[in-house]
Design a binder for these strands. Structure first.
Lengths: 337, 337
DNA sequence: CTGAAAGCGCTAACAG
DNA sequence: CTGTTAGCGCTTTCAG
């Protein structure tokens, strides 16, 4: 099928070892023959076989990135950060989307290792799983996730702190009854955010009412549906903290549909600060994650692990979140994006 | 390092061929030994080496997907379609993001082939390139792109028709001076859309004024900047057709900032019908591409090419676009999402 | 500076 | 049903 170094060698009447060396620009090779070989390779349309190379070299210069939902803009922003950083280190990234499906996550973890990627960055679907991390021979860095045994490095936003900031802001904005709409309770980061929210309520002597704490999925539809449920209550909330921006968007829509004025009658705070949250039509109040930066950090840690496969580096990073005040909560200073 | 079939064979005192057969569930193997081998493999944490397998089998069950901008929601939607369809066929997808950088595109094309992916789907950055497709040994299907020589299969929206529909809608909505804000003029699809726009103007006896036809980049900032330019004109447009939804969003923002009422004073039509264009705060009038469907079609064609590597299948698909009327153009029927 | 030989981990004939 | 052998395309000793 495709041209190999042997084909080139035969054509030139030399050994294929020399061809290999020339193509890898080893200094030992005679300059003239080197040039001749490179030229011939180009002429014949030679394409090195990365499989064969990987087999002998024991590395592939490829990384895996496992994320749960590529249509949530949070993850493309992460993906870009990882990819940009990886490229600079000479790595390519195999992006895998699990659709929040744990079986799929496990499958990808397996496949990536079989393809002998040099390392993996993963936002895990769930945190309560024990089977997931069996037989990991490949360096793994978690993103906003924790393994059960806690033996992987990670980069995460301080989710508790973020939840606290969100709820505190709603309280200080004068809302009286603050609900929570989260993603799945099996998600580590979701629960941490909920935790922070409860802490703030307690801190400010607000009651924690489980009746206005709802969890569903990490998407707009779920946000919309759960908001609808909350509004139907006899004693509905006058503000909510959403587990992420995508949920917040659905909630926002529902509130508007109910003809409540935002932010006067109802306040909404999200989490992530994804790009669409910034647009003037929305300007969502939210908790900012420095996504690009976090992605870069995760990659840096992964690089260290790869370069010291024997030594177990301990490198866990917790990033400080930042409250962004938009126009979906009361004390807004409206400003340009 | 990691466990190989030889290790398992040694441990069990049998030949590694038998191990290979058992692990591949070949029916010929004795059931008992088969079970024993599989169990031992699990116990030892065996992970097949896909590189070695690929080397001998000549396929990798991996596909490449090259896109220019993962943060434009159009592409995640495409990516999901490709990935879902690929998974059903037993393939994984290597997602590559070029950031609209042609050198990067070429690099990825090369890398993917070196990794011996079985096929590639690509939205090309530019259409005017001749070097790009050199030495393609790998099946390639283009998405909303054309190769210079036209010798690759593709799936595309009818961009001319889409541009026509957009401009026609603005005309019929009563706007008098309709501009165009596009991405780069080196993009095939962009130019086709512009073409359709001009056709509509001519058809309805509107003048084609190059002074209100601006091109820049395919992002929100560019849309905003170019819109600003247009509004500064002595004789500014009262509507624009944007090359895609992301550009439209930037334009929308700029128009609102200028305190013009949408849709009364100013109309905007985008292209793509990405998810955010549907949200109630925006409800962008736009041209719909059935993205998921198109991705699936591209994958189907690619599958055919892979399965008939010798026979050159000719399979070019042009999809009909659909006008979606939102609330950024006058004759709106406001409706739920 | 160049070649011969071994081997990466696996599958695929070919025997037995 | 199982083992032996060869070979995928490449890099890496080890000689020369």
């Amino acid at each position: 099928m495709s041209v190999t170094i042997k084909d080139i060698a035969k054509k030139l009447g030399i050994s294929y070892t020399t061809v290999s060396r020339a193509l890898n620009r080893k200094p030992q090779v005679n300059e003239e023959t080197m040039e001749k070989i490179i030229e011939e390779a180009k002429k014949m349309g030679y394409q090195p076989n990365a499989l064969a190379r990987g087999l002998v070299k024991k590395y592939t210069k490829t990384l895996g990135l496992i994320i749960p939902d590529i249509t949530n803009p949070y993850f493309p922003e992460i993906a870009r950060g990882v990819e940009d950083a990886a490229r600079k280190e000479g790595y390519n990234v195999l992006l895998c989307n699990t659709n929040w499906d744990q079986a799929q996550e496990e499958a990808y973890l397996k496949i990536l290792q079989e393809k002998r990627v040099d390392g993996i960055i993963m936002k895990a679907v769930l945190d309560n799983d024990e089977n997931l991390f069996h037989h990991m021979n490949t360096p793994l860095v978690l993103l906003n996730s924790r393994s059960h045994e806690g033996n992987y490095n990670y980069v995460e936003i301080d989710n508790v702190r973020g939840g606290f900031l969100a709820a505190e802001h709603l309280i200080q904005s004068g809302y009286k009854r603050i609900g929570f709409i989260g993603g799945t309770t099996r998600s580590y980061s979701n629960n941490q955010r909920m935790e922070g929210y409860k802490l703030a309520l307690k801190r400010y002597h607000y009651p924690v009412d489980e009746g206005i704490i709802l969890n569903g999925e990490f998407n707009t539809k779920s946000g919309y549906d759960l908001m609808k449920k909350l509004l139907k209550l006899k004693n509905p909330p006058d503000a909510i903290f959403a587990g992420n921006d995508v949920i917040a968007l659905g909630a926002l829509y529902c509130v508007q549909e109910a003809k409540l004025n935002i932010p006067e009658d109802f306040g909404v705070v999200g989490f992530d600060h994804v790009d669409f949250a910034k647009i003037p039509q929305i300007q969502l109040s939210t908790i900012k994650q420095p996504k690009y930066y976090m992605a870069k950090q995760a990659l840096d840690i992964l690089m260290k692990e790869i370069k010291n496969k024997d030594i177990k580096v301990n490198n866990k990073m917790v990033i400080e979140p930042q409250l962004i005040i938009g126009k979906t909560t009361k004390n807004t200073d409206i400003k340009a994006v």
